[in-house]
Computed example of a mutant assay.
Amino acid sequence: MRLGIVSDTHDDLAAVEATVDLFESRDVDTVVHCGDFVAPFSVTPFDADFAFHAVRGNNDGEWAVESTVDSFGRYHGEAGTLTLDPDHPNREPVEVAVVHGTSGIVVDALVGCAEYDYVFHGHTHAHGVEARDGTVRVNPGGLPIPVDGADDAFHVATLDTADSGVDAVTHHRLDV
């Protein structure tokens, strides 16, 4: 199974469309948005040829984001969990927790609890991946913003469950 992971698209339709195009070209089965769409119009392009899951970001001020996601995908509220079939007969299901990441304490607790194979989050606009005690934290990145530590370009990530750990994650820079 291949996943697309994205966060912090902040109503930038060019970024959203480039993301959908990349994920479709990579034949992802499922896309997870870690929050901060901002408005419903920037949700609808994700109604594409993949399963879709999303959590609420701190800038998702329009509550219609929830009903828009639910019209074609699954909205998990503040946090969600997914159990993924790895499409490999000798591998256990992959357990994932998803939050926006506004609270670093919550992200660290999810990584540290040893219940999940992966913890996806955004918020910082800085892509990264790290393994800690059997759990991999994945931040796909986001649009560049003028904050120390944020990326200078838009990034998303893909995860292939045929692999495991950090080797399963690839970050992609999108020029938008």
Rank of each mutant, 00 (worst) to 15 (best):
L82Q: 05
T30K: 07
V94I: 15
V96F: 12
E62W: 12
D29H: 11
P93I: 04
A97C: 11
N58G: 07
C34A: 13
V98F: 00
P86S: 06
F50M: 06
D36S: 08
V69W: 08
R91L: 14
F46R: 02
C34L: 11
E78M: 12
V55I: 02
N59R: 09
F41G: 12
V99S: 10
V38P: 00
L84I: 14
E95M: 11
G57K: 00
D60E: 06
T30Y: 02
V69G: 03
V38F: 02
H33F: 06
D49C: 08
A39M: 15
R91E: 13
H88K: 04
G73Y: 04
A54K: 03
T81S: 13
A39P: 08
T83H: 06
V99P: 07
G77A: 05
H76I: 05
N90A: 15
H76C: 02
T81C: 05
E62N: 15
F52Y: 14
C34S: 06
T81I: 11
V96W: 13
A54G: 09
D47V: 00
V32W: 10
F50W: 06
P93C: 07
V65D: 12
V38D: 00
G77H: 00
D36T: 07
F37E: 01
E66L: 10
F72L: 05
R91K: 15
T83M: 13
E95N: 14
V38A: 02
D36Q: 03
P45A: 09
P40L: 01
V69I: 06
E78P: 03
V38Q: 05
C34R: 05
V65H: 11
F50C: 03
F41I: 09
E66I: 00
A79Y: 10
P89Q: 01
R91A: 15
V94C: 12
R56D: 12
A97N: 11
S67C: 10
D47Q: 14
P93W: 08
D49V: 09
P40V: 07
D85S: 06
V55D: 02
R91I: 06
V43C: 12
V43P: 10
S67L: 11
F50G: 01
G73E: 05
V31T: 11
T44I: 14
L82P: 06
L84Y: 02
F50Y: 13
E62V: 12
T44F: 12
L82N: 01
A48M: 08
N90L: 15
N59M: 15
F52P: 06
A79W: 10
N90R: 14
W63Y: 10
G73H: 03
F46H: 01
T44L: 15
T44W: 13
S71P: 08
P86Y: 06
D85C: 09
H33L: 08
P40A: 07
E95F: 11
H76S: 03
F46Q: 08
A97F: 10
P40E: 12
D49Q: 04
A39C: 13
V43H: 12
